[in-house]
Computed example of a mutant assay.
Amino acid sequence: MLKHYRELMSSIQNGDILPLYLFYGSEQVLMQEVVEELIKRLVPADSFNCLRFHCDETPIQAVVQEADSMPFMAERRLIIVENAFLFTGTKGTRVEHDLTSLEKYLEQPAPFSTVVFLVYADKLDERKKITKLAMKRAKVVSFHTLKEHECRDWIEKQVKKRRGRITPDAINRLILYVGTNLQLLQTEIDKLCLYTDESEVIDEDVVDLLAARTIEQDIFVFIDEVVRGRMERAIRLFYDLLKQKEAPVKLLFMITRQVRMMLQVKLYSQRGFAVQHIAGMIGAHPFVCKRAYEQARSYSLQQLESMLCELAEMDYKIKSGQIGDTEGVETFLLRLPQFLGSPPCHMGGAIRG
């Protein structure tokens, strides 16, 4: 996805601008970035020759009429058509659209106008005559949700654009909290860059301090810290979750579920199955499965099996009353580094506080 986006941006920045564009997909942030680049190149600070229309409000024949009109004291006009559902199977209800006028325009667009159709849908209806024609005459680009590695790259570039710096771990943490929704990420990046000046680096602590998150995301990050063996961070998060009234037994169950998934993914991957295929086999979301695959790299099969046995033993001790639930989870967390070959973690008062 990012490859096509970069190629498109590069061609626009080099002045290779076409008369017709059709953008579709769910990733509106990237779509709007391209539109902003077109505005910058064609009609900077020129409100007379940059027009926006919405297909729910304006008939397409009126848009065509504007596209056919000469620019006002300029070389080109830019026409942006929002929610151009005419190229999908969706039917509008507010206005009547004369598609014949659009078909004629697509066959012979005005040389002094650039028209951009924005379709906020994952698919075009390629059976429709108007869509087939647009795919022949316009530059058609899909804007779908970025893959995780693409999202990391996008975050780093957005921070650099704001003259900031961010660590790889901070990028991973931000994705854990927010996911790969670029609109939400953009808001968080703005916040992080405003908080830090150009001499500071955005690290995990800054992300933890500022990023908006839900208790479910806090739990997800807690589990990630546990299985990565970063016990001091995990223990701090554990006490934070206790303050939010999360039950220790629930947290122990979720650790167990993650370790079990790590074991399954490791077993299947060693047999040659791809992560995407494994996700379907074990009934997990591909993003979650990929995360488990990355986490499992730090462990051998024997270590993961031993961890599951330890978790089962601790669960039994808690439920049989041999140990308190909070103490049981603490004990497991303190012993976990042994599975990674690290020294045991010692829990000091500063951590508990």
Rank of each mutant, 00 (worst) to 15 (best):
K3Y: 09
I12K: 10
N14I: 00
I17S: 06
L18G: 00
P19L: 11
F23L: 03
Y24S: 01
L30P: 07
V35E: 06
N49F: 03
L51I: 01
H54T: 11
C55S: 13
E57H: 12
M70A: 13
G92E: 02
E96S: 12
L102Q: 10
Y105M: 04
Y105E: 02
L106V: 01
P109F: 10
P109Q: 13
F112M: 06
L124H: 10
E126V: 10
E126Q: 09
M135N: 08
E150N: 14
K157F: 06
K160R: 15
K161V: 05
R165A: 10
I171L: 00
N172A: 07
L176I: 09
Q186S: 14
D190R: 06
K191W: 09
V207E: 10
A211P: 14
D218T: 09
F220K: 14
D224I: 01
L242E: 05
F253R: 12
V259Y: 02
R260W: 00
R260Q: 12
R260K: 14
K266D: 04
Y268N: 03
Q270F: 03
H277S: 12
G280L: 08
M281L: 12
L308Q: 06
Y316G: 01
Y316M: 04
K319E: 04
G321D: 04
Q322V: 03
E327K: 13
Q338S: 15
P344M: 10
C345W: 14
G349Q: 10
